Simulated assay, not measured.
Amino acid sequence: MKNKMLRKAVGAAAYIAAVFLLLQLLYTGINNPVIFPSPFEVAEIMAEQITDPQCIDAIAITILRVSLGIAASFLTGAVLGIVRFFYPWTSRILDRFVLLLRSLPNITLIILFLFWFDGESCIFFVICLVLFPLVYQACADSLVQIGQEWKDLFAVYSQPRLYLLKKIYLPLLKPDLGSALISVSSLGFKVGVMAEILSQVRSGIGRSMQIAKLNIDIASLFAWTAWLLIVVFVYEQFVKKLIRICFK
Rank of each mutant, 00 (worst) to 15 (best):
L228K: 03
G119R: 01
L165H: 01
W150T: 13
S38C: 04
K166F: 14
G11L: 06
A47V: 04
L21M: 11
S183L: 03
Y163C: 06
T225S: 14
L26W: 11
S38P: 01
N215E: 12
K174V: 07
I107K: 01
L172W: 06
F97W: 09
Y136T: 14
R102I: 00
Y27D: 13
P88K: 02
I182N: 02
E48W: 04
A72I: 11
M194C: 04
L22T: 09
V239G: 12
G206D: 14
V79A: 12
S73Q: 06
L64F: 12
Y169K: 02
L164V: 06
R84K: 05
M1E: 12
W227K: 00
L22S: 11
L129A: 07
C122H: 04
F238N: 09
F113D: 10
A78I: 09
I146L: 11
W150R: 01
P105H: 01
A155T: 05
Q137E: 15
F222H: 01
C128M: 15
P39M: 03
Y87T: 07
A17D: 10
V83H: 02
R102W: 01
T225K: 00
L75A: 14
G119Q: 14
A60Q: 08
L23N: 07
P37I: 04
L109E: 11
L165M: 04
